[in-house]
Amino acid sequence: MDVPELLESASLLVPEETATENDITVRDIRDYLVHDEWEIALGLLEELGDGHPLPLVPLAFWEKLADAAEQLRLERSSAWCHWRCSEIRNGAIRADLTLRPTADARRTTPISGAGVLRPMWDIGHLSPTGGRAVSIARLWVEDMPSLESGGRATVRLVPLTPSQWKHVQPGQLITMHEDQTVAGTAVILEVHGPATTMPAE
């Protein structure tokens, strides 16, 4: 499919009455498509999708937007749409992350905000010998391209092995590791299981 077909197809997967925070509806977005304003339409469709809980927006919606963003060569947008696909497949956790300051941490450069980092997390599991066992989750920093050492931001985590994260609850403190040392601490804000395991509403 070409870009307008992908965007039109994605728009059909969102209820007509759905609106962005600025009251832009699917009908408005279709007007942008008619006038070949594809980047604007893509951005508004992303906004529509972001405004709804994971199970209410189907995987196909984000897959079509990802394809359109790739064709338009919009790297950050493409990465975000692929990220949302991962959240639907593997579940998503939002957390308030604080990185250790440079003086106390091994890392001396900012971490990328676009979902490329796969740090280890201490979420309370123990190894068979009683030591700490870590679980891996990819990290996306909300509303920021990167996060400096000592910085604080709301982040989204996509677990590599969702079953290891079933016990995680809002309010729980977890620690981030890139090696044996603690790179940061996070307080869980929200937990969403994979869409396939979620009960129908």
Rank of each mutant, 00 (worst) to 15 (best):
M1A: 15
P4T: 02
P4A: 00
E5I: 05
E8V: 00
A10P: 11
A10T: 07
T20V: 06
E21D: 15
E21T: 06
I24S: 07
I24R: 08
I24M: 04
D28F: 09
D28R: 05
R30N: 03
D31A: 12
D31K: 13
Y32D: 15
V34G: 03
V34K: 13
D36A: 10
D36G: 10
E37F: 02
E39N: 09
L42K: 02
E46P: 06
E47P: 07
L48N: 12
D50S: 11
P53D: 12
L54M: 07
P55A: 08
P58V: 02
P58Y: 00
F61G: 04
W62L: 11
A68Q: 06
A69R: 10
A69N: 06
E70L: 05
L72V: 04
R73K: 13
R73Q: 14
L74K: 05
L74R: 11
R84F: 02
E87R: 09
E87Q: 15
I88V: 05
I88L: 12
I88W: 01
R89C: 02
R89G: 03
P101I: 00
T102V: 09
D104P: 03
R106G: 06
R106W: 11
R107N: 13
T108S: 12
P110E: 03
P110H: 01
G113L: 10
L117T: 11
L117M: 13
R118N: 08
P119H: 02
M120G: 09
L126V: 08
T129Q: 14
T129M: 13
G130K: 08
R132E: 14
R132M: 11
A133G: 08
V134F: 10
S135Q: 11
S135W: 00
I136T: 12
I136F: 00
I136N: 08
A137I: 03
L139F: 04
W140P: 08
V141S: 00
D143C: 11
D143H: 15
P145R: 01
S149L: 13
G150F: 04
G151I: 01
V155D: 04
V155Y: 00
R156P: 09
L160A: 15
L160P: 04
T161A: 13
T161H: 10
P162R: 07
Q164L: 11
H167P: 12
Q169Y: 01
P170M: 04
Q172I: 04
T175C: 12
H177G: 09
H177F: 02
T185R: 14
A186S: 14
V191Y: 07
G193I: 04
A195D: 05
T196E: 08
P199R: 06
E201Y: 01
